[in-house]
């Protein structure tokens, strides 16, 4: 395989890996404000649920 083709493949592979890692790590910062809650403020896991009652 020619060097140029190899380089292209390597670049594509790096791009794909970077995209995957980005998706895996994507986290949203959602402000809690004064919304109703249950559980301790220092809980290790915070779950924010958007809901519709109807």
């Amino acid at each position: 395989m020619k060097l140029t083709a190899r380089c292209t493949l390597v670049v594509i592979a790096i791009f794909c890996m970077a995209s995957y890692a980005h998706c895996e790590e994507q986290r949203y910062s959602v402000p809690i404000e004064d919304s109703p809650f249950y559980g301790p403020a220092n809980a290790a896991v915070t779950i924010i649920e958007f809901l519709d009652y109807q």
């Binding site: 919304s35 403020a41 809980a43 915070t46 649920e49």
Partner: peptide
Amino acid sequence: DSIRIIFKQYP
């Protein structure tokens, strides 16, 4: 004791 659940309204 490990989780906190917060509710946001989305009618």
